Computed example of a mutant assay.
Amino acid sequence: MNLVPVSVGDYRRIAERKLPRFLFDYVDGGAYGEVTLARNVADFAGIVPRQRVMRDVSSVETSTRLAGTDCAMPLALAPVGMGGMLARRAEIQAKRAADAAGVPFTLSTVSICSLEEIAAVSDRPFWFQLYMLRDRGVVTEILDRAWAVGVRTLVFTVDLAVVGERYRDIRNGIAGGTGRWGQLRSGPLSYLSHPRWLWDVGVTGKPHTFGNLAAYVPAATNPTQYREWVGRQFDASVTWEDIAWLRQQWKGQLIIKGVLSPEDGIAAARAGADAVIVSNHGGRQLDGVASSISMLPQLREAVPDTVSVLMDGGVRSGLDMFRAVALGADGVMIGRPWAYAVAARGEAGVSAMLTAFAREMSVAMALCGVTSVADISRDLVALEGDNR
């Protein structure tokens, strides 16, 4: 019997069946023993909504504004590297779904589809994510390209001075694994065992290049070669002074992604960030660190009110979105959820998932007695152990 997907978990199960093992593990996995990966999700369960009854909730409005962008709900699609390997030109499909839902789509530096391809989808602006590469000339060129196609919100990732140890990727042979088993799990046999993916992505989803980087790595012919180049480009010497330099180059909204301490939040604000994203990179970098949601209140308290605070990591429903806003987030970003959905059902899957998030957010607001995002406050949730 085919599963009718309702939750993110449903889409995950379908994606696991449809994708070659190495690709599913790339999206699904985290660093080391994946403690933080699990913690990101589990810690939401400890945030207890406070139900309120007998309030007029006949008209609930989930719309808000994130980093200068009007949104139908406090949510944006996070950047997902190699997203276009999950379904045919998947970033394009996700952009269409995000446009229809009225939320921002964020394109990754290491996307399969290019800035120019995404800009051609519609006139609705999208966000773009970038790393600080060793070659600052490449950075400025990419920034110019982004601006030229209408990007006005830059999401700059700062928690990748070095790449975390991701055991699943190593086992599968796509991150340093060279054994025969790793080659089998990520090679032709894996493709042939997933014929629908092979046709949809492997045959009709070409080119399999990192569209934003093709001009800088002309000899690369597949995502693995691009990944190796990007890995060499990560600059471990980057400091907040480099972010100040970036602020001078970029005249639009600047969001710093990968902040997990109040001190770094304050430093990001001083460097000129318009917003920060509380994030541990989805548990893919330093395993064992705190969940993003547990650090959110401290970050919100530390940074100036003029700096927006978003969070990502572990958001799996509209109820989680409500919880995050109640703890001080202006909004959330979701990565794995849309990756699972596009792998499972393409654009239609992402659209259905976003519709579910909006509905779940609306229900949570109504049952907690509020009708607008601005009315969601800290007193609408309790932490486990609080007096309720």
Rank of each mutant, 00 (worst) to 15 (best):
V4H: 13
P5F: 00
G9A: 14
Y11E: 01
R12Y: 08
R17S: 13
P20D: 12
A31E: 01
A31V: 00
Y32L: 12
E34H: 11
V48W: 13
Q51E: 15
R52D: 04
R55F: 08
S59H: 02
P74H: 06
G81P: 02
A87K: 07
E91A: 04
K95D: 10
A98T: 06
A98D: 04
A101Y: 07
A101P: 02
G102K: 06
T106D: 11
V110A: 15
S111L: 04
I112A: 06
E116C: 09
I118H: 01
D123Q: 15
W127S: 05
W127F: 10
F128H: 10
R136N: 06
R145Q: 07
A146W: 01
A148Y: 06
V149K: 01
L154G: 02
L154A: 03
F156K: 02
A161I: 11
Y167V: 14
W181C: 10
Q183V: 05
P188T: 03
S190A: 15
H194K: 13
R196K: 13
V203H: 09
K206N: 02
K206R: 15
F210Y: 10
G211R: 03
A214L: 06
A215P: 07
P223N: 11
V230G: 05
R232N: 14
E241P: 00
L254Y: 00
K257I: 09
V259M: 04
L260S: 07
A267D: 10
R270E: 12
G272V: 00
G282I: 00
G283A: 13
V289P: 03
A290T: 02
I293D: 01
Q298T: 02
A302L: 07
V303D: 06
P304V: 08
G314M: 07
V315K: 08
L319H: 11
M321G: 12
R323S: 09
V325M: 11
V332P: 10
V332M: 07
Y340P: 03
A341T: 03
G346K: 00
V350M: 01
L354I: 02
A356E: 15
R359H: 14
E360L: 15
S362D: 08
C368R: 01
C368M: 02
G369S: 07
G369E: 02
V370W: 12
V373G: 09
V373K: 08
R378C: 07
L380K: 12
A382S: 08
R388S: 08
